[in-house]
């Protein structure tokens, strides 16, 4: 009955129409360049550098993909490394972040402000690339180790604060009810709070996973050429940049350049890098459900 009433309300109806229209429009804007990317990746280099991109491939060819998959073993290895890091890093990072975020929003935790500041402070001042590099690669001895990349992406102040904010919206009654049952703080967190944080876990987990998936910077600093299988984005970044570096005359070095399809190659790498992770989002999305009700807690 109620639902019917709401549907009849004209302003609500208007809002719905606007919503559908705007979301559709923005989606088209988002997907349009992607269509260009896909079509360019199947185009012939010399044609698109003359005529520009089109919505359909110009001079259909697979040569850019042949370049990307020139060494299938390498790219599969890269996928393996990145997937392993993403899965492990997201799981571990998410758990630590959720734990910390929950603790930091507890009003009865005397250190919450001190620790919050301690964590937040790191976003304001960082030592900068060189000192950090010397510390991590030299003193910690992580140069050439996947750990250097894995560990540094494990958490960020931003995600902890985000989690803390989400955890705030979980009613304190839940914690209290756990306490009455005689459960310890960790037990309360693990068995009562953690399941209630689903939208937050989905959000933070998604961000963590994207962080791992898109990572190339730390890899370029700490892994360089010392590992056989580079993380995917770094591997692809290398393909793109190799084309750029070798083609520009900046490098005084005499390098024999083979026929690299520069522009189309860039586009093909984008398709290869993005393809699999696109499927992650719908999977994550099912956790975005309005779930928390006080009634559920009390009942």
């Amino acid at each position: 009955m109620n639902k019917n009433k709401i549907k009849l309300d004209p302003s609500t109806k208007l809002l719905k129409i606007i919503s559908y229209a705007v979301v559709t429009l923005w989606s088209v804007i988002c997907i349009f360049p992607f269509v260009l990317v896909i079509s360019a990746s199947f185009s012939t280099e010399s044609i698109i550098s003359r005529e520009g991109f089109g919505l359909l491939p110009k001079g259909f060819t697979l040569s850019a993909y042949e370049w990307v998959f020139r060494y299938p073993k390498m790219i599969l290895g890269s996928y393996g490394v990145t997937i392993a890091m993403t899965v492990l890093g997201t799981a571990l990072g998410l758990f630590i972040i959720a734990m910390t975020g929950y603790a930091l929003q507890r009003k009865d935790f005397p250190l919450r402000n001190v620790i919050s500041f301690f964590i937040y402070f790191t976003t304001l001042f960082s030592a900068g690339m060189v000192p950090t590099y010397l510390w991590v690669s030299g003193t910690l001895g992580l140069k050439g180790s996947y750990l250097a990349v894995f560990l540094q992406l494990l958490m960020s102040p931003w995600l902890i604060v985000l989690m803390k904010n989400f955890a705030k919206s979980v009613p304190y009654e839940i914690t209290e009810s756990g306490k009455i049952d005689g459960a310890g703080d960790f037990r309360i967190f693990l068995s009562l709070i953690f399941p209630m944080l689903k939208p937050a876990l989905a959000t933070v987990g998604l961000f963590l996973a994207l962080g791992y998936w898109n990572e190339w910077y730390q890899s370029s600093l700490y892994l360089g050429s010392s590992v056989t299988y580079k993380p995917l984005q770094y591997y692809l970044y290398g393909i793109i940049n190799q084309a750029n570096a070798l083609k520009s005359s900046v490098a005084g070095a005499n390098v024999t350049i083979t026929d690299l399809p520069t522009n189309t190659l860039k586009m093909a790498t984008a398709v290869v890098a993005t393809g699999p992770i696109i499927f992650l989002y719908p999977f994550v999305q099912k956790y975005f459900i309005s779930g928390i009700t006080v009634g559920a807690v009390k009942g």
């Binding site: 989400f166 919206s169 009613p171 939208p199 937050a200 989905a202 959000t203 975005f288 459900i289 309005s290 779930g291 928390i292 009700t293 006080v294």
Partner: peptide, 8 residues
């Protein structure tokens, strides 16, 4: 996610 977290 924040909207989803609102007390339904």
């Amino acid at each position: 996610a924040a909207i989803c977290g609102i007390d339904s």
